[in-house]
Every structure is written in structure tokens, then in C-alpha cells.
């Protein structure tokens, strides 16, 4: 132990240094390591959390985008469908209108024809009765006698036939 005393080693000083160290250890542990490590840990956790959140947000964004696209696609399809249907309906309506108007025209024409025919018939009848009267009158004057109705009729008919 001669060498130790040459270096001035004293047990009291050794003990003092050990005590120094222990005090320092205790205080640093309490005031430096614990809070700093805690903060480091906290920060790591927070960063992890925010990274996770960011990932989730991105995922949600992607999902929303997809949903939006789907809806848009569907809407455009619907619109196309509606347009097609409308076109078809318009065509159908056009055709129907055509048919109807044709029918109506045909009806009007038919009615006109019927009316015209009726008028012609009526005129014919009137004409015939007037002609009969005229013929009867003429015969009376020619023959000087009143014809019997049977004769009259026969004559009228003959005349008319001859006329027409």
C-alpha cells in the first residue's frame, strides 16, 4: 500500500468521492434522466400516433375519392339512360301523333264524302220528283186528260229512263 500513499490515496477521500457520485446519481436520475426519457418516450408515441393518423386519413381520402368516382359514374350512366328513354318516348309520341292525325284526316275525308253523297242523293230525289211533276203536267197538256195515277207513274218512269 506504499504506492497508494504515494498517490495520496486516503480512505476518507475515496468515501467522499463515492458519496459525491451517489448524490449526483440520485439527483441526475430524478431531475435529468427521468424527465428527459419520459419526454423522449412521449414524443415517440406521439409521432407514431400521428403517423398512424396520417395513414388513416390518406386511406379515408382514397375511399372518398373512390366513392365520389362511383357516384359520378352512376350519375352519368343514369343521365344517359334518361336521355335515351326520353328520345325513345319522343319518337313513340311522334309516331302516335302521325297515326292519330292520319286517322283523323281519314275520318274527316270519309265524313265529307258521306255528306257529299247524301247531298247528291237528296238532290237527285228532289230533281226526280220535280221532273215527274213537270212530265205529268206536259202530258196533261198533250193528251188533254188527266192521267190515272197508274198511267202517270208508268209514263214518268219511261220518260225518266229515256232521259237518263
Amino acid at each position: 500500500m506504499d504506492i497508494l500513499s504515494q498517490f495520496g490515496v486516503q480512505p476518507v477521500l475515496l468515501a467522499a468521492q463515492v458519496v459525491n457520485f451517489l448524490i449526483l446519481l440520485f439527483i441526475l436520475k430524478r431531475f435529468l434522466y427521468k424527465p428527459v426519457l419520459k419526454v423522449l418516450d412521449e414524443r415517440r408515441k406521439r409521432v407514431e400516433e400521428s403517423l398512424k393518423n396520417a395513414e388513416e386519413i390518406e386511406k379515408k381520402l382514397l375511399e372518398t375519392e373512390e366513392a365520389k368516382n362511383k357516384i359520378l359514374e352512376k350519375a352519368s350512366l343514369d343521365v344517359q339512360k334518361m336521355l335515351d328513354e326520353t328520345k325513345k318516348e319522343i319518337e313513340v309520341m311522334k309516331e302516335e301523333g302521325k297515326v292519330q292525325s292520319e286517322q283523323m284526316a281519314a275520318q274527316i275525308i270519309k265524313k265529307g264524302q258521306e255528306e257529299a253523297r247524301a247531298a247528291v242523293e237528296k238532290m237527285e230525289q228532289e230533281l226526280m220528283s220535280k221532273l215527274g211533276d213537270i212530265v205529268a203536267l206536259g202530258m196533261e197538256k198533250v193528251t188533254g186528260k188527266v192521267l190515272k195515277t197508274s198511267d202517270q207513274k208508268e209514263i214518268i218512269e219511261k220518260t225518266v229512263r229515256g232521259m237518263s
Partner: peptide, 9 residues
């Protein structure tokens, strides 16, 4: 630079 201190440690 004192052996006491280093030896203590």
C-alpha cells in the same frame, strides 16, 4: 488528476 477520485469512481 487525483487518484482518490478515479479510484473512488
Amino acid at each position: 488528476s487525483d487518484l482518490n477520485m478515479t479510484l473512488g469512481l
